[in-house]
Design a protein around this nucleic acid. Sequence first.
DNA 1: CATGAATGAGTATTCATTCAT
DNA 2: GATGAATGAATACTCATTCAT
Lengths: 186, 186, 186, 186
Amino acid sequence: MSGPAAPRRPRRHDPGRRDRLIDAALTVIAERGVAGTTHREIARVADVPLGSVTYHFASLEEVLREAFTRHAEAAAQVFDRRLSAVRDRDAAVEAVISLVAEDLLGSQDDLVLAVELYVAAARNPVLRAVTQAWMQRSRRALERHFDPTTARQLDALIEGLVLHSALSTDPMTPGQIRQAIERYLR
Amino acid sequence: MSGPAAPRRPRRHDPGRRDRLIDAALTVIAERGVAGTTHREIARVADVPLGSVTYHFASLEEVLREAFTRHAEAAAQVFDRRLSAVRDRDAAVEAVISLVAEDLLGSQDDLVLAVELYVAAARNPVLRAVTQAWMQRSRRALERHFDPTTARQLDALIEGLVLHSALSTDPMTPGQIRQAIERYLR
Amino acid sequence: MSGPAAPRRPRRHDPGRRDRLIDAALTVIAERGVAGTTHREIARVADVPLGSVTYHFASLEEVLREAFTRHAEAAAQVFDRRLSAVRDRDAAVEAVISLVAEDLLGSQDDLVLAVELYVAAARNPVLRAVTQAWMQRSRRALERHFDPTTARQLDALIEGLVLHSALSTDPMTPGQIRQAIERYLR
Amino acid sequence: MSGPAAPRRPRRHDPGRRDRLIDAALTVIAERGVAGTTHREIARVADVPLGSVTYHFASLEEVLREAFTRHAEAAAQVFDRRLSAVRDRDAAVEAVISLVAEDLLGSQDDLVLAVELYVAAARNPVLRAVTQAWMQRSRRALERHFDPTTARQLDALIEGLVLHSALSTDPMTPGQIRQAIERYLR
DNA sequence: CATGAATGAGTATTCATTCAT
DNA sequence: GATGAATGAATACTCATTCAT
């Protein structure tokens, strides 16, 4: 035990701090939820003083918006990457299966972030815009290989599979994921 | 608001008060989210003094647990009612379609409560148990008419359709819901 | 030295605390000005925990409004008392002189409170209403003995004499006050 | 407002900047009061970067002192100009009337600045010196035409008339101002 | 020289919970 | 039994000032 506060190395010059704060915010959202995301907690995770968070962001909502935007962008790139690499429909089906079984279910944090964004978006129009842009982008990616109706339904199925897996004590196995998607896409 | 407490008409003997508080809590969760659910807000909605909430419940978590349990019970009964009334598989498919298009998408509050429960459950084991019992119960209801694998996948699909509709600016029409479910169930 | 915080005697039951808080607020306004009037400072002067101030008043503005209202009421009563005790005009002139020279200039705190109220009222409509009610009431008291035009001008003169005295290193003597008022009232 | 600083056009060599900052400070004091006068607000009004304010002034108090000094100087010049232009006592009376009815009551900002200075001076010795110099100077100007006792009383009357008018919903008309001053000066 | 990132102290306010009446 | 006053910890946010660039 060495006093009430940990010594903090001075770091007056720290370019890129704003970026690190956004990453720290995503960590906090995943760990404690949007409701547990406070200036203090973000500052603690980023190892910067409290005032630094309020200096770089005019409000907590701004932090959340930027954090979720960054997360959605990264998630959308995964979609794009998986689906732009394939040429025929069979490969597309495999790509969707891998996307769900590996990318989406692979990271517990990402699952949690998705659900947190959904619930936050239910009450915050700014975040709803982020969600909708994300949904639209994933639908566009699916439409490269599937007709619009199928793409939309598939997108909902993916969402449901991910959500169920995130909350279940008994998540689906990759084989079950494969079966569900193949059944839908013939 | 000015001053600590508004005068309130006396209502000393009030046997249903605990029940009314649980309903008030559900109203508050739907309106403001779990994060905005406070003793004060519940008391205000139920029109009872602040002390009454802490008198009837040992903690806020207890209120949330009871409220979500009641909500899940009511939601499960809707599942049961729809699916126990049918005798053959074709009627079961129709029942699922009605369930989603009418019951689940019919009430914005219910959608919101479901998502709030999901996210709260992600961090609270007590609430996770409520969620899982609910999921299990709806799966059992589906298993009256579909094999376990189909039931599980269908449950996830339903979840996805509901969630997508809840968050989209452009929700699916009943016809689209019907098409997605029929496609899955042949 | 005995630790970071002074021990505070427990005082869970404390009727009249709200009243004491209003008095404490007046003390703080007089000592530090409206700009220096904070929840913490009021709590410190009243020797209650910080949360107590926010419990009894919905906002700092509410505290200021109640404090200035109480002060204006007390000040108006002094006016009334001085002026209701006299029967003829000569006695009224003496009463005004005593009012200014003794009551108004007698308490440095009261002078300061008056100026603080003026400046706060310049930006806060709620406080402007307090000021105007006070001005109106003192004018009515003067109108018992002087015609309305004289009353109004006399009221302004009193204000000016008080303000000048409050700010001057070289305040007017009672004799000078008497001369100024007598000159005006013949 | 989003983020710490808006991009700003460069203006490296700017010799009048200190002066502009003082004017900006007076604008801010008039608009928001001394309590609302911050480095940031002054910088915003002057359209210069935040660091520029702290570069040119060692502290906020220095800004306030210079701003009030400039204001008092300008106000005193108005007094001087009105009263140095006249030769006999009747003209002096007219000059005082014009001074109050036109100059002093003509600018709401000037009224507010005067009251802000009074209240700030009540707690800040540096500003009290500014106030007293100003009072002394206006008294000297009046003494060109009136004996010292009359000058002093007249100065207080002017103060009272201005203050009353500033705060009243029902300010005095120019005719009433004239009557009050003429009555005092015969 | 001039700037703006950085920081720490301070502000109003909310609220779960305790407890005397 | 029921209430609401009381409390202390926490929250978002502001800002004067310092200081590296």
